[in-house]
Amino acid sequence: MNRRTSGFTLVELLIALLIVSLILSAVVSVYVGTTRSAASLQARNDLQPELQVTQNYMASKLRQASYIFYNGANVQMSVNGKTTAKPDGTQNWVVGDTTAPIVAFIIPPKTVATGACATATTTTASTYCYAFYAFYPMKRNAYLAAVSGAEKFDANPVDDSTAWVMMEYRAYYSAFASNPIYGLTGFGIASPNEIPKGGQGRLLMDYLAPTAAATPLFTQANTPANPTAQTAGSTTVTMNLAALQTVAGQPVRVPAGTTTTYSTLTVYPRNVGKTQLSN
């Protein structure tokens, strides 16, 4: 008499377990892929407006410039300030150096009034005084080590040693001059190398992508040392900016593309050679 046994054989159980594991693997793969895609999309949505706002702000300031520091010019904004230091820790920036890129320029006052700059307050300096500006990158970890309090953001161990931030240094000449500075050397100060020192750099943009030597962060055209030789329409500054952040183990770049893809914008300073901002 044959006995009919119930239940599954070992082979059947193994096959069932294999099928279940394959299904679970597919579900996990889809979940991980969806999570990564969502995280990348969110990062891209965060980086895109920050890049655009930064580039537009920098362009708006450069368009107002009356003097662009020429290629080869030395720019020192501090003696030992941490937020104004080059990547190697020194303070002597050189315009045109692709390993430590910087663009520096002078914006003229809105109103020319004899003696007004020497007595200007912090609220009137932008009206009556010449202003020195510089844009330059810093390593993200160097910035975090240099600042504290509200200026400090969360560390990101994945990107801190490779990502950069864009910095701005701004200082009005009135705070460093004992005499009125109008009417000197054409564009209003005794010497462009007399940079008002002692201020602090401030953060403009986080997660700035490093640039390659073939595509410098800043390039300039027709920027001779003599202020009168710089002319509106031919003196230009070109910016090559991109944002880069690692999200879920994957690089997210804006604008999307290769490591040589940048948002490029050429600026034509309209006040070159002028002593007052144009309307």
Rank of each mutant, 00 (worst) to 15 (best):
R140H: 01
L217Q: 08
A65R: 06
S278I: 13
V28G: 05
E50P: 00
V28T: 12
T127P: 03
M58R: 04
A213F: 01
A38M: 12
L13M: 04
P108T: 00
F135T: 01
V247M: 09
T90G: 07
V237G: 07
M167T: 03
L10R: 03
T275W: 00
L14K: 01
S234T: 15
A221H: 11
L51P: 03
A171N: 14
S21T: 00
T90V: 03
T90E: 12
R270N: 14
K110F: 09
M77G: 07
Y31H: 14
A125E: 15
Q200A: 15
K139G: 14
G257L: 05
N80K: 10
N2I: 11
K82M: 12
T275H: 05
S78G: 13
A175I: 06
A120C: 07
G233W: 03
A73Q: 06
T84K: 08
M58Y: 08
S21Q: 02
M77Y: 07
Y143E: 02
V247L: 05
A243W: 03
L241Q: 06
P210Q: 15
Q76W: 03
S263L: 10
T5Y: 08
A65H: 07
W164S: 09
V247E: 11
T246V: 11
E151W: 08
L18H: 00
P251A: 11
T215F: 09
G81T: 12
I15N: 08
T122D: 14
K82Q: 14
T119K: 13
R170L: 13
A190V: 10
A131Y: 10
A39D: 14
S29A: 13
L208Q: 11
Y169T: 11
T235A: 07
D154F: 06
Q42T: 11
G198R: 13
G115N: 03
T84V: 06
Q64T: 11
P108R: 01
P157K: 07
V247H: 12
P109N: 04
Y31V: 11
Y128R: 00
A213Y: 03
G188K: 01
A163S: 15
P224A: 05
N56Q: 15
Q76R: 15
C129Q: 04
S278Y: 06
Y70F: 15
G33M: 03
A221N: 10
A242G: 12
S25E: 03
T259A: 14
A85F: 01
D206K: 15
D97M: 00
V267K: 02
I15P: 05
Q200I: 05
Y169G: 08
G199S: 09
M167C: 02
M167N: 02
P49F: 08
Q64F: 02
G199P: 12
A120V: 10
W93L: 00
N156M: 08
Q42W: 05
A65W: 07
T123W: 03
R253I: 10
G81W: 09
T211Q: 15
G183K: 01
S126R: 13
F105C: 06
L204N: 11
T261D: 03
L204M: 15
A59G: 07
